[in-house]
């Protein structure tokens, strides 16, 4: 059981947690994005193969579109690198001292990897 917290929205928005706070928020959003849409994709795959429903084809058409791929790709790559950061900091608690540096390192890995892949995927899609 968690503590009931009553934090007004204004106070929440004024809270300046910095890099680690945004990593926590993005980790949640990307995690929810993956569990909802990838579970849906698995069920849609099952639906196309076994049930033959139009809903499954409709779902996968959206899922396989470029925009959705760019979204889910960001979710996966951010969640993976941020998860690795969490595992490292949990395993060696002495490194907490450098947690701000870890955030910078994380973005230094995520941004180039994401941008390069996204760029190539967009180019291929435009080129047909």
């Amino acid at each position: 059981m968690t503590l009931p917290r009553r934090v007004p929205l204004g106070a929440a928005l004024r809270y300046r947690g910095g890099g680690p706070m945004w990593a926590w928020i993005l980790h949640r959003i990307s995690g929810l994005g993956m569990i909802l849409f990838i579970a849906g994709h698995v069920l849609a795959g099952f639906g196309i193969q076994q049930l033959g429903g139009d809903w499954a084809i409709w779902y996968n058409t959206i899922y396989e579109s470029l925009y959705f791929q760019l979204f889910i790709y960001f979710c996966v790559i951010f969640h993976a690198v941020n998860g690795a950061r969490i595992i490292i900091l949990d395993t060696w608690p002495a490194l907490i001292k450098f947690q701000r540096e870890f955030i910078w390192l994380e973005w230094a890995i995520v941004l180039p990897v994401y941008a390069l892949t996204a760029w190539i995927m967009i180019q291929r899609s435009l080129g047909g």
Binding site: G31, L32, I35, A39, V42
Partner: peptide, 15 residues
Amino acid sequence: GATHGFNGLRLVLEE
């Protein structure tokens, strides 16, 4: 993936 993900969903919702 499914176990990690559904447990994560449980953690988020239980808050």
